[in-house]
Each structure stands twice: as structure tokens, then as C-alpha cells.
């Protein structure tokens, strides 16, 4: 049986003003696949994540299909309701907005956009509690305003908690390993691995091979100069760890 394609990026060009960031990037991720994108700093990895999620401020050409549907016509919240999730490299602090209030608003906004009934409070609380326990998210963190005063590790755990609650079809993890110590890395990776399923795809963006020891990718893509330079299996990540990105950066020079 053929595995369906979940995310398909076709010849994506992105620029901000005069500056070209993505330069004809194409990539396909199948259902159940964990695809890793590795690349040097400043090569447009985070831009790729933002553009897929629908952030404003970019001039964009090309197509991004989620389950065969072009999502470029959709607002970010509509993309989220279709099952797209972005775990931010730098989760935003929102003082004044209680974490629980935010979680409930996000969950119910997505449910109502899909025509599903809103979750009642007891059911919602139960789900949060379960997910929080698994990720070592304390009650104290849940009581605080969203991400306010959280350490880097706490913010990343909160991202994965949100992912677990929202149960996306396709998740993009943007440098989720940055700012994590080994213990936190393990907790976060376990959280991601628990969500792996044949019904869900992942795009894991990282600078270091380290994360891929914990979240084992099916495919590895080397990104440099705004496009995918090479595609392979997990062995490609190890090769990069040994030789660095020189050969891919040098190509343009």
C-alpha cells in the first residue's frame, strides 16, 4: 500500500525586500515520516518554518500542500485548524494571559473551526494534567502567565505540551533542542516520540546531530543557501557531524 504524502513543498522562493532567503526549495514528507532538516546558521531554516505556518512579512512564491491542499491561501489559525503545528525556536512570553486560559482558548478555537464541540472544563483539565505529568510541566508553570519567566527548557516543554494537547497532523519543530540540557532534551524527545504515529508527520529542524540521537529521523535533508542540497537517511546526519557543512556552503563560493 502506498503511503500518502502529507507535506509537499514545491519550488518555494521566499524573500524579504531585496533579500532572497529561500531559493527554490522542494521537499516531501510522507505520513508517519520524521524528516530532519539540518543546515548551518542563517540558511533560512526558521524562515521555512514561519512561512509554512503562515507568518506575515514575506514575499512568497511556490506552493506548500498539506494533505494535498495548498495552504498558502489560509490564515495561520486556519492552517493550525487543519492540523499544522509549529514548535517555536523562541516561544513568546505573554504576560497577563494565564497559561490555562491560553491552552483552552487554542484548543477550543481549533475544535470550533473544525466543527467539533468545545471541550468542557473537567475534560480539558484532565487532558492538560495528563500531558503535563508526562512532560514534567509543574502545576506552578500552568498557573503562571504563558511562558512568563520560564527558563529555556520550560518554554520548550510547554511547546511540546501544547503539541500533545492539540494533536496535530503535521508538526514542525524549530530548533527544539536549543537551550536544552541533556535531561530536558530527553524529556522533550520522549514527548515527541510518544506522538509519533503513522497518521502524523514531523519536520525536525536542527543545527546539531545531537537531537537526532533522541528523535530518530527517517530522512535527513541538508539545507544550505535557501534550498535542499542533499537528501539521505539517518547516516547523513552522522556524516554532517563529522565533516560539518563546509562542502555545502562552499558550493556557491
Amino acid at each position: 500500500m502506498q503511503v500518502p504524502t502529507m507535506l509537499e513543498i514545491k519550488n518555494l522562493h521566499v524573500s524579504v525586500g531585496e533579500r532572497k532567503i529561500l531559493n527554490g526549495l522542494s521537499l516531501t514528507v510522507k505520513a508517519g515520516e520524521v524528516a530532519a532538516i539540518m543546515g548551518p546558521n542563517g540558511t533560512g531554516k526558521s524562515t521555512l518554518a514561519y512561512v509554512i505556518a503562515g507568518r506575515e512579512g514575506y514575499e512568497v512564491e511556490g506552493e506548500v500542500l498539506l494533505d494535498g491542499e495548498n495552504i498558502f491561501e489560509l490564515d495561520p489559525n486556519e492552517r493550525a485548524a487543519k492540523g499544522l503545528f509549529l514548535a517555536f525556536q523562541y516561544p513568546v512570553e505573554i504576560p497577563g494571559v494565564a497559561t490555562m486560559t491560553f491552552l483552552k482558548a487554542a484548543l477550543n478555537a481549533q475544535r470550533s473551526a473544525r466543527g467539533e464541540a468545545e471541550l468542557q472544563t473537567p475534560d480539558f483539565m484532565k487532558r492538560v494534567k495528563e500531558a503535563a505529568n508526562k512532560l514534567g510541566v509543574t502545576q506552578d508553570m500552568l498557573r503562571r502567565p504563558l511562558n512568563s519567566g520560564f527558563s529555556g527548557g520550560e518554554k520548550k516543554r510547554m511547546e511540546i505540551l501544547q503539541m500533545a494537547l492539540l494533536g496535530p497532523r503535521f508538526a514542525i519543530l524549530d530548533e527544539t533542542d536549543s537551550g536544552l540540557d541533556i535531561d530536558a532534551l530527553r524529556v522533550v524527545s520522549d514527548g515527541v516520540n510518544a506522538l509519533r504515529s503513522s497518521e502524523r508527520g514531523f519536520l525536525v529542524i536542527t543545527h546539531y546531530q545531537r537531537l537526532l540521537d533522541y528523535i530518530k529521523p527517517d530522512t535527513v535533508h541538508v539545507m544550505a543557501q535557501g534550498r535542499i542540497m542533499k537528501t539521505g537517511g539517518p547516516e547523513l546526519a552522522l556524516e554532517l557531524e563529522r565533516h560539518g557543512y563546509k562542502e555545502y556552503i562552499g558550493e556557491a563560493a
Binding site: D75, P95, Q162
Partner: peptide, 24 residues
């Protein structure tokens, strides 16, 4: 954008931020 990316329509995202701002 963070709130939109989590599924809140823009006007709801704004309202939540404004409420949070005042409630501080």
C-alpha cells in the same frame, strides 16, 4: 502570530492579549 499559529483567529488573539494586558 504565536496565538494565531495555535489556532486563534486574529481578532480573538488580539482580544486575549488586550485582556491580558489590562488584567496585569
Amino acid at each position: 502570530f504565536y496565538l494565531e499559529a495555535r489556532g486563534l483567529p486574529r481578532h480573538e488573539a488580539e482580544a486575549l492579549l488586550l485582556e491580558g494586558f489590562a488584567s496585569e
